[in-house]
Design a protein around this nucleic acid. Structure first.
Lengths: 150, 150
DNA sequence: CTATACCCGAGCAATATGGTCAAGTATAGC
DNA sequence: GCTATACTTGACCATATTGCTCGGGTATAG
């Protein structure tokens, strides 16, 4: 699992975009100024965000980026997935092959559970929540309700 | 936040150690064979584990390592802390200084909540649990109860 | 005295991260 | 059409970290 500043930058940029939605297409240079992220780097990030269908682009003068979905439909997990590679907690290649030279390692269930735990959080929180600066404890409660139904 | 194979190796080694406790001091070379981790690398990891007070060492022939506490007193977080650096989700240096050139960034609460979320898990699960190969969903429920009392 | 097994520091290959640079291409407006 | 705007893309690179090795120590049981 990797949770680096690349993912943080991407989330910050998307939240910024969400906060200026009503102004029409938002240029990367304006996001760059507000969020202190270099333009070149933003271009790299938004390429991936676009390829993942999270934003739409408008080319030419007056162009920029727009969110492709409603703010409550875009989760933090969506963004992290778009810019980072897959979030892995185990080192096992496949489920069948196992991680420990044939057999499954003693800590397999631990890392799997941790992965679920983190993903539940990231998949539950949307950029709408971040814009509202929500009290995330409420979100964690919702997460647990989901878990209890298992 | 970093969750790399270094931490995984350390946890695997500690679980292995816990599983052979009754045999007296356990040599790193035996752990090396069972867990497929190089001896030199294990020495590096156990130096940190010892400095953190998680294991005791016995030098000389017949020597090896022993857990310094009971299995239910050693959490996964303890181990990760010992070998990795601090687990950080925010990039803010200090609480007062803020992360965003003076002011606090829009996503500050998000990353703080995520950090709590992950740490609650890691601090709740002990190597005893891993040895028992516990159903971690139960643990997650206990975590949530703690959160609800906030 | 010697074999065992922990202890410690230096260093290194591979990888990933965070970021730049230099070119494009589409389009609105004149 | 021309031009400025702003997205699009590929190549590239400095730096840091990770995972790991090597070569020597030092303590102690027998």
């Amino acid at each position: 699992m990797q949770l680096t500043s690349k993912g943080r930058y991407a989330v910050s940029a998307m939240v910024d975009l969400a906060g200026h939605q009503d102004e029409g297409p938002i240029t990367l240079s304006s996001i760059s100024e507000r969020q202190f992220i270099s333009l070149s780097y933003l271009e790299q990030l938004f390429r991936k965000l676009r390829e993942s269908g999270l934003v739409d682009s408008v080319r030419g003068p007056g162009g920029g980026y727009r969110l492709a979905k409603a703010t409550h439909e875009i989760t933090i997990a969506d963004i992290m997935h778009a810019v980072n590679e897959t979030i892995q907690t185990t080192m096992c290649k496949s489920e069948t092959e196992g991680c420990h030279r044939g057999s499954r390692c003693d800590t397999h269930n631990l890392w799997t559970a941790l992965g679920h735990h983190i993903n539940f959080f990231l998949e539950t929180v949307t950029i709408q929540d971040v814009c509202d600066d929500k009290n995330y404890i409420d979100t964690l409660k919702a997460v647990e309700k989901t878990l209890m139904q298992h």
